[in-house]
Amino acid sequence: MLRISTIDGGVIDVDSSLMTIDDGVIAWWRSESEEAVARWRLDEVVGVQVLVEDPIQRARREHPNAYRRWTIEEEAAVVEAFARGEAVKEIAAATGRRVGGIRSRLIALGVIEPAPGDRVSVPSSAVPPSAPAPAVPSSAVQTSGGEAGVEADRAVV
Rank of each mutant, 00 (worst) to 15 (best):
I72T: 14
I26Y: 10
I102H: 05
A38V: 05
I4Q: 02
R58V: 03
R98A: 07
L106Y: 07
A83T: 15
N65W: 10
L51Q: 05
H63W: 14
A131W: 06
A148L: 08
E151V: 10
Q49P: 04
Q57L: 15
N65I: 03
L18K: 14
A115L: 02
V50T: 01
G10Y: 01
S33I: 01
S139M: 10
I56M: 07
V50E: 03
D13R: 00
S33P: 07
R154P: 11
E44F: 12
V122E: 05
Q57N: 11
R84E: 11
I7Q: 13
V78A: 06
V122P: 07
T71S: 08
E62Q: 13
R84A: 14
E86P: 09
D54R: 04
A135G: 08
I91P: 11
R84P: 07
A27Y: 06
V88Q: 11
R98S: 09
L109V: 05
W70V: 09
T95I: 02
P132E: 08
A140H: 15
D13C: 11
S104V: 05
S104P: 04
V45G: 10
W28S: 07
R103L: 12
V156F: 15
R154L: 09
V88T: 11
P129K: 04
L106F: 06
S5F: 06
P116R: 09
R69M: 12
N65H: 13
V50H: 06
V127A: 11
V48F: 00
V25T: 03
V157W: 15
S31K: 13
T20H: 05
Q49Y: 00
G24S: 05
D118Y: 03
G117W: 02
E80G: 09
R98Y: 03
R58Y: 02
L51W: 01
D153V: 15
L18Y: 14
V88L: 09
G149W: 00
D118Q: 03
A38W: 05
M1D: 00
A77E: 02
D13I: 00
G24M: 01
V156C: 10
P128F: 03
G110A: 03
S130I: 15
R41N: 12
D22C: 09
V136N: 11
S31D: 12
A135L: 09
R60D: 02
I72P: 12
D118V: 00
V136R: 14
I72A: 14
V37I: 01
V11T: 13
D13A: 02
L2Y: 00
P137M: 08
G101M: 05
A77C: 08
L42M: 10
T6A: 10
W28K: 05
V45F: 11
G96S: 01
R69I: 08
Q142C: 10
P134T: 08
E86A: 15
E113A: 14
A66D: 01
E32R: 13
E86M: 10
L109D: 08
H63P: 09
A152C: 14
Q142P: 07
S125T: 07
G146N: 04
A92S: 02
G117F: 02
S104W: 09
G24R: 02
V120C: 06
Q49G: 08
W70T: 12
P137I: 04
S121I: 04
P132M: 06
S139P: 07
A148K: 11
A83N: 15
L18P: 08
A87L: 10
E32C: 13
A133D: 07
S124Y: 06
E53Y: 01
N65P: 07
K89P: 06
L2V: 00
P64Y: 00
L2I: 01
A135W: 04
R84G: 13
